[in-house]
Amino acid sequence: MIELLLVGIGTGNPEHLTLQAIRALNSADLVLIPRKGADKADLANLRRSICAEVVTNPATRIVEFDLPLRDRTNADYRCGVDDWHDAIAEVWSDTIRSEVSGDGSVALLVWGDPTLYDSTLRIASRLQPAPSVRVIPGITSIHALAASHAIPLTDIGAPFLVTTGRALRDTGWPASVDTLVVMLDGDCAFQHLDPAGITIWWGAYVGMAEEMTLSGPLLETAPRILEARGQARERIGWIMDVYILRRDSA
């Protein structure tokens, strides 16, 4: 049986790797590195750099593969994502079969933590034959963002909600919660909120050398974020960002 190691690697900073993650990578027979096209070559380069720094086992092989692109023309978002995950699972299965004969362990380096807004576990469940799966947790962009701003995620005794930009844009601010963490937001959904009484803590490339952060009242800070985000995307070619919103409690 193949053992699949899903290794959380934090947000791009090799110092975010835990000792457990380093041991897992060195125990693997094979480490897979996905390539996502020229515009996201930095992501593959970071994975290569991490492996070069921490993988010291000469028996561990590193193999790269091209990740299928998602069809963004499909009007049915969930259907489009399901088709994409099927295609990725097929590539994983073919690559593992061609590189590992019989039993063995295969590691994948997952941004942040494999259990939070990441589809690696869902894709792994589609592999044939089904592997055994072991998850090694990693530092999330949420924790790295709060640390960069030196703020607590919660008020005393109060909850917070992790959501997506799509959900915030389509349904507005959820009831009964004053703090939101917003991920996967390509359209800056905070623009659709009444900014009165809301503070934002925003970060892009959190934990990486390119990290940039902004914070303040939403009314004043939103235009600065939009400008900085646009410039960064044009300069680097891609962007990963996350933000915390907190409204004044009654």
Rank of each mutant, 00 (worst) to 15 (best):
M183S: 00
E210T: 11
W238Y: 12
L193T: 01
I225S: 02
C188K: 05
L193W: 06
M183K: 00
Q231C: 08
V177W: 04
V182I: 13
I200D: 08
L218Y: 01
M212D: 13
F190V: 05
L193K: 06
G216K: 02
A204M: 14
P195C: 10
L193P: 00
W202R: 03
D241I: 01
G186H: 08
A196G: 06
M183V: 03
D194I: 06
A228L: 02
G186F: 08
P217G: 14
D178T: 14
R224V: 00
V206P: 10
H192L: 15
L226F: 02
R233V: 08
D241P: 11
G207P: 08
C188M: 11
L193D: 02
A189P: 01
H192V: 09
E227H: 09
T213F: 04
E211W: 07
R224L: 15
R229Q: 12
V206N: 04
A189F: 01
Q231R: 15
E220D: 13
M208R: 11
R233Q: 15
W202V: 05
P217F: 15
G230R: 06
A196L: 11
W238L: 03
W201Q: 15
M240S: 08
G203C: 12
I236V: 14
R229N: 07
A232E: 04
D187T: 15
S215K: 12
L219Q: 11
Q231K: 12
D178M: 05
F190W: 10
D241Q: 06
T199W: 07
Y205T: 01
T221Q: 10
A196M: 09
M240P: 07
W202P: 12
D187K: 13
Y205S: 06
P195F: 10
V177D: 06
Y205L: 03
P223R: 13
I225N: 05
L214D: 03
A209R: 15
G186I: 11
Q191M: 13
V182Y: 01
H192R: 10
E210G: 05
D241R: 02
R233L: 13
A232S: 14
L193R: 04
G203N: 14
E220W: 00
E227Y: 02
G230E: 07
M212I: 14
R224Y: 00
T221R: 05
Y205K: 02
D194H: 04
I225R: 03
E220A: 13
T199G: 02
E211M: 10
E234S: 15
A232Q: 09
G186C: 07
Q231Y: 07
C188R: 09
W238S: 07
G216I: 00
V177A: 04
